[in-house]
């Protein structure tokens, strides 16, 4: 699997990222670079939705990279929403001791888009919808 197989799509003012079920460490870290590059390249990007609904294992490395990425995107002026965490992953992450206090989350991508609209005033319908 290469990082090219991870889908990163700009939809209007939002960057949509789908994480594959069991990514290698290298894919996770290059995904971070890809996201930050996109933030720089598209000046109209207001935020990022990371869809992890396919992910079946999230260990501390994976979580740390996501938390870090969200902080970097925030420093660049964007909002990150993590969408679709499976119940088994949420239970495991909490028992592992992970904390996602500063991370916005949503049940699925649909609700994440609603949240983006609410917080940033944008969504897939564009600005000032």
């Amino acid at each position: 699997m290469t990082v090219e197989s991870v889908s990163v799509n700009k939809v209007r003012n939002v960057l949509l990222v789908s994480v594959p079920p069991d990514p290698e460490d290298g894919i996770i870290s290059s995904l971070q670079e890809k996201i930050l590059d996109s933030m720089e390249r598209y000046h109209d990007l207001q935020g990022l939705i990371i869809d992890i609904s396919m992910v079946d294992t999230m260990d501390s490395y994976f979580a740390r990279t996501i938390i870090e990425t969200a902080e970097m995107v925030r420093l660049m002026g964007g909002l990150t929403i993590v969408a679709g965490m499976a119940p088994s992953v949420a239970i495991t992450a909490t028992q592992l001791g992970l904390t996602f206090e500063n991370l916005s989350t949503a049940l699925d991508v649909d609700l994440a888009l609603d949240m983006m609209l609410e917080k940033k005033g944008v969504g897939v319908f564009g600005e000032n919808y």
């Binding site: 294992t57 499976a86 088994s88 992953v89 495991t92």
Partner: peptide
């Protein structure tokens, strides 16, 4: 959930 815990 148990599978996820062991794998993690």
């Amino acid at each position: 959930t148990e599978v996820t815990k062991v794998v993690t």
